[in-house]
Amino acid sequence: MKGMTIIVKKVSEILCGVIFLYGIYIVLHGHLTPGGGFAGGVIIAGAFILLIIANGSEKVSLKRKETGTSFTESGAILAFLAVAASGMVVGTVGLFFKNYLPKGHIGRLLSAGFIPVYNIVVGIEVSAALITVFLAFVIFREEVLK
């Protein structure tokens, strides 16, 4: 995929960092404000997709093919399972998805026990999944055109 004109490149360079930060904000504040892992993950993936569309696929290093993002995605879903399964070990009554961390004050950033952790893991999973699908379309198409 080829890049676009210099105007698009410059604007996307400025914007994609801001979009990335906004996605992280949405993920971290998932238990306080509307949003969460799914919405924030899609926004983070959007920042990367914007960068790739504007600059062409050569700018982002695609040497390792799709395995990088695919590995991140698989790792994130394994981490989700591990965090959920850790509730089975802790305490006298073990339960899958047990929220054994202290709850804290409602409304603080560090509260709600494991919910922020689940949000972060799901955010990584969703963003990596979307980038993987997008890269699959870009890379496999270039492979065919060669």
Partner: peptide, 8 residues
């Protein structure tokens, strides 16, 4: 749940 956002 300790979460201010009920949906989450």
């Amino acid at each position: 749940t300790g979460s201010a956002n009920l949906v989450t």
